[in-house]
């Protein structure tokens, strides 16, 4: 098993964080993982993305040239990364901010209004976790929802523990949207 996943969005949309949630969950599930962010000037208001690899074997390259999944939180991210999805792979698109449709017809594409859902549950900053839930709904064979929640708890730590409940709710909403 090897899952290579790219999380991309504007800086501040929390894509690096949900990448960490996935890497942490993978580690807790006993897998080998790596998390590699983009960095530099593009962090200043441009696109921010990270590559997460989860594998049964030690991770060789942390760089991803062909992805099992791409999660695009905004239009520039979808345009930049949709071509990297392997045929038959997964593309998750935040339809709250992206009106366009993907040009890919050889992979599964999920459109989810992540910001709208987040606002509906009273957690407008939780759109990243909603879209993470949508991704996870298709990948529960890699990490379970329980492992993801444990990872979120670990990443938030004691200082931000008050945000845990809101994040769990957002995660479940994302999963439910895809399963509905």
């Amino acid at each position: 098993m090897k899952e290579q996943c790219i999380f991309a969005g504007f800086g501040g949309q929390g894509m690096l964080l949900i990448g960490k949630f996935l890497a942490q969950a993978g580690m807790m599930a006993g897998k080998h993982v790596s998390w590699l962010p983009s960095y530099g000037p593009e962090m200043r208001g441009g696109t921010a993305n990270c590559s997460v690899v989860i594998s049964d074997r030690p991770v060789a390259s942390p760089l991803i040239s062909m992805a099992d999944a791409v999660i695009a939180m905004n239009l520039p991210s979808m345009l930049k990364f949709q071509s990297l999805v392997k045929p038959g792979g997964l593309l998750v698109v935040n339809s709250s901010l992206i009106d366009d449709k993907s040009n890919r017809d050889d992979c599964e594409v999920i459109y989810i209004p992540a910001n709208k859902i987040a606002e509906e549950i009273g957690n407008p900053k939780g759109a990243n976790v909603v879209i993470f839930g949508a991704y996870l709904a298709k990948k529960l064979n890699i990490v379970t929802a329980e492992q993801a929640i444990e990872a979120i708890r670990e990443e938030l730590g004691e200082k931000k523990a008050r945000f845990l409940e809101g994040n769990i709710k957002a995660l479940h909403k994302g999963i439910e949207y895809v399963n509905a």
Partner: peptide
Amino acid sequence: DGMICQMMEP
């Protein structure tokens, strides 16, 4: 190199 410093691993 820059990649090692920026990446996370267990």
